[in-house]
C-alpha cells in the first residue's frame, strides 16, 4: 500500500506503477481500485478522437500547454492501436508531446490496445481513476475513434473533441452514424489545407440533423502552428458549463457508473463460465454435434446455460 500513499501525495512513479498493475491485472489490483474509488471523481475528462493522421496528439499537446497556463495539473492517456500481427506495438503519440515531458505538472501515459485482459475500456477507466487520485485536474484521453472499446472510452469522457481534417468527404459519411453523435466539440485541424470550408459545411449540415439540446460548434485549427487552440478551449468550457447547468454532468456520471458495474458483471460472468472445466468440455462436445448437424447452435447454447451456476 506504499504505492497508494505515494499516489495520494501526487508521486508520479507510484501513479505509473499502479497503472501498470491495473493494465496487467497484477494480484491485488482490485483492492487498489476499491481503495481509490472513494477519492476519485474530481478530474474533468476530455476525450480526443478522430481518424489516424488527423493530428490528435499535436492538438492535445497544444491544448494541454494552454491549460497549463492556468497552472492546473494535467494527465494524458494516449491510446495507440496495436500491431494486429505480432501482438507487440509501437506507441508513438508521445513524440508529439515531447516538450510536455519536461513539465512537472503533466503526466503522459501511452497504452496499447492489446494485452488488456479485461478489455481496453476497463483498463482506461481505471487509469483515469488513478490519475484523478494522483491529482490531475484535467485528464485527456486520446484515441483513434475506431473499435467498440475505443468508442466506449470516448463516451465516458465529460467532453469529447472530434478531430477531423479537410478532404475526408467519404469518411465523414461513413462515420457520421457512430461517431458524430458522441462529439461535443468538432475541430477541423490542418484547416490551412484545401477543402477545409467544405468539410466544415458538411459537418455543420450533419449536426443540423441532430436534435440534441447542445449544439456543438465546428472550430477551425492548425494545431502545428498553435492556431485555433483558444477557440477550442472556450468551446470545451462552454460544453462544461452546459453540463453543469443542466445537471447533465451528474446524469452522465450516473450512466457511466451503471455501465461500469454492468461491465464488471459481464466480464466476471464470462470469466467464470469459460474458465470452468466442466463447461469447457461440454462446449467442446456440443460444438462437435453442431458441426455434424446433430443439433443446432441455439439448443446447444441453451443447454450450456442451463448447467451454469453462478
Amino acid at each position: 500500500m506504499d504505492l497508494l500513499q505515494g499516489l495520494k501525495k501526487g508521486n508520479k512513479r507510484a501513479a505509473a506503477k499502479l497503472i501498470t498493475m491495473i493494465e496487467n491485472r497484477t494480484e491485488g489490483y482490485q483492492d487498489v481500485l476499491k481503495e481509490i474509488h472513494k477519492s476519485s471523481g474530481k478530474a474533468y475528462v476530455i476525450g480526443i478522437t478522430g481518424p489516424p493522421g488527423a493530428g490528435k496528439s499535436t492538438l492535445t499537446d497544444k491544448l494541454v500547454k494552454e491549460i497549463r497556463k492556468q497552472d492546473k495539473k494535467v494527465a494524458i492517456i494516449a491510446i495507440d492501436p496495436t500491431s494486429p500481427f505480432s501482438g507487440g506495438s509501437i506507441l508513438g503519440d508521445r513524440i508529439r508531446m515531447n516538450d510536455l515531458s519536461l513539465d512537472p505538472g503533466v503526466f503522459i501515459r501511452s497504452m496499447g490496445t492489446r494485452g488488456h485482459l479485461g478489455g481496453l475500456s476497463v483498463a482506461t477507466k481505471s487509469a483515469i481513476k488513478i490519475l484523478d487520485v494522483y491529482g490531475a485536474e484535467y485528464i485527456f484521453v486520446e484515441t483513434v475513434g475506431v473499435g467498440q472499446s475505443e468508442i466506449e472510452i470516448v463516451k465516458s469522457a465529460d467532453t469529447t473533441v472530434m478531430v477531423m481534417v479537410p478532404g475526408l468527404g467519404d469518411d465523414i459519411q461513413a462515420i457520421k452514424a457512430g461517431i458524430m453523435e458522441i462529439g461535443d466539440v468538432f475541430v477541423i485541424n490542418k484547416a490551412d489545407r484545401d477543402g477545409a470550408n467544405r468539410t466544415r459545411a458538411e459537418i455543420e449540415m450533419m449536426l443540423d440533423f441532430s436534435n440534441s439540446e447542445f449544439k456543438p460548434a465546428v472550430k477551425m485549427a492548425v494545431a502545428v502552428d498553435g492556431k485555433g487552440i483558444n477557440d477550442i478551449i472556450d468551446e470545451i468550457e462552454r460544453h462544461k458549463e452546459y453540463l453543469i447547468k443542466t445537471d447533465k454532468y451528474h446524469h452522465n456520471r450516473v450512466t457511466s457508473a451503471r455501465e461500469e458495474i454492468v461491465e464488471i458483471i459481464k466480464e466476471n460472468i464470462t470469466d467464470k463460465i469459460f474458465n470452468d472445466h466442466l463447461i469447457s468440455s461440454q462446449l467442446a462436445e456440443l460444438t462437435q454435434k453442431v458441426v455434424k448437424r446433430e443439433i443446432d447452435p441455439y439448443t446447444a447454447g441453451f443447454n450450456i446455460l442451463k448447467s451454469i451456476k453462478l
Partner: peptide, 10 residues
C-alpha cells in the same frame, strides 16, 4: 517561424 515537428513513422 516556429519549429518543425517530426512525423513519427516507424
Amino acid at each position: 517561424f516556429g519549429e518543425y515537428q517530426q512525423s513519427v513513422i516507424i
